[in-house]
Design a protein around this nucleic acid. Structure first.
Lengths: 222, 222
DNA sequence: CAGCATCCGCTTTGATACTG
DNA sequence: CAGTATCAAAGCGGATGCTG
């Protein structure tokens, strides 16, 4: 990207991560951890292969990602975030939070990958009863399951199956999100095709974070 | 911008504000409040006028800005953030924080506008002695002064002169930032050309926020 | 197959000129 | 002041081909 050539923090941040696809690459690495080139391609439907290669070079030079030869068994290189790259998490979180309302319905033609669920769930859910023993929930919205677990009063979501679950939600992502974010109740979601197995109390543990009040137009503090 | 067509919050946020220049326009409106078209041009050196016009149309359609005929005396229209647009503040703050280290030196050829100082100062400074009476500091790094004042334990920065000041800093922006962020001490900055008038205690009131610990590579919570 | 590099047509951007 | 018009250059998306 052409630099904005402005002595301003935001402009400098965008000089580094403002290019098309760049923040989505960071998203993939944040949610999934180390990725092979083809994993990234799979998680970024629509990206041109030359662009992905280009972006990775730029991100490496900017100190945001690192490439490492994977341990002997697998013969491939793995891309990972550096600590500096991982520090982008709050910025991605803030943008993700801002976009919350835009997720209420799924536009036709929009692609979806189950692990993308981890982002909004972790950002929006809290544990209603943090003192009770932790619960685990498995979401199945496609080929790869996502695990949601309560921890330290918060909620952690990660791609992959759960070792043991208190409940399993299966169905369309917009239904899963709708139920977990409190936009639709379980009964309605079930009649729309969502499958729910397990203890219904598990769901009530997870509560959408209260929408923060409007920031005043001058208020920059987070 | 072409949509990413992904059912993912981050992608949807970037569909709206991921275009080149878009977030910088929001920055201008956050820091300066309502702006005329030419104010925006002045605050966005390098933008092509057709792009600015295009972006404003897109931002208006997205519900992020609003155009209003200014009150009778002035015969011009003013662009302002909507509440929804102002909600981008946390995202811009997070990106600005991330870029903090990039501001340590000013690249040659980088343009600068004094009101841009308001962004990093508000993001990084805290009031060391919140219970003492508030202090006001005026910064002069160009034609338009910037006022920094302690309030509620935090620090507010805004473009414009202060009614009354406890101290005035005059000089190059990188020196002002360096001193306020604790990267260089006052004596060194003075010998590099920074002018300081007023009570030296005022400076000690303002303290850079402690760098938050590295977020773990999986940690998305802000 | 994983990991790119190349080519090509299209869209977006940048720079400048011009207008109500 | 607040834009529109024009055009060259850069960036992007899609397809395809090359290399271990």
């Amino acid at each position: 990207m052409r630099s904005y050539r402005q002595y301003c923090g935001l402009a400098k941040a965008l000089d580094v991560v403002g290019d098309r696809w760049t923040l989505l690459i960071v998203r993939e690495l944040l949610v999934r951890g180390g990725c092979r080139y083809t994993d990234l391609q799979a998680g970024l439907p629509g990206i041109a292969t030359n662009l992905l290669a280009q972006r990775l070079v730029a991100l490496e030079q900017a100190g945001i990602v690192r490439r490492e030869a994977a341990p002997p068994p697998v013969a491939t290189t793995v891309v990972q975030l550096t600590p500096r790259g991982a520090e982008l998490a709050p910025a991605i979180a803030a943008l993700g939070r801002w976009a919350g309302p835009l997720l209420s319905s799924r536009g036709r033609g929009e692609t979806f990958r189950p692990h993308w669920l981890a982002l909004p769930l972790q950002l929006y859910l809290t544990d209603k009863y943090p003192t009770r023993p932790p619960v685990t929930l498995e979401l199945r919205a496609g080929d790869e399951p996502v695990t949601v677990e309560t921890i330290d009063g918060g909620v952690r979501a990660r791609p992959g199956p759960a070792a043991s679950t208190h409940a399993v939600l299966t169905g369309a992502p917009e239904l899963i999100l709708g139920v977990l974010m409190g936009r639709i109740d379980l009964a309605r979601a079930r009649s729309a095709g969502l499958k729910y197995e397990g203890d219904p109390a598990t769901l009530r543990r997870l509560q959408p974070r209260v929408r923060s009040a409007h920031t005043s137009s001058k208020g920059m503090n987070p």
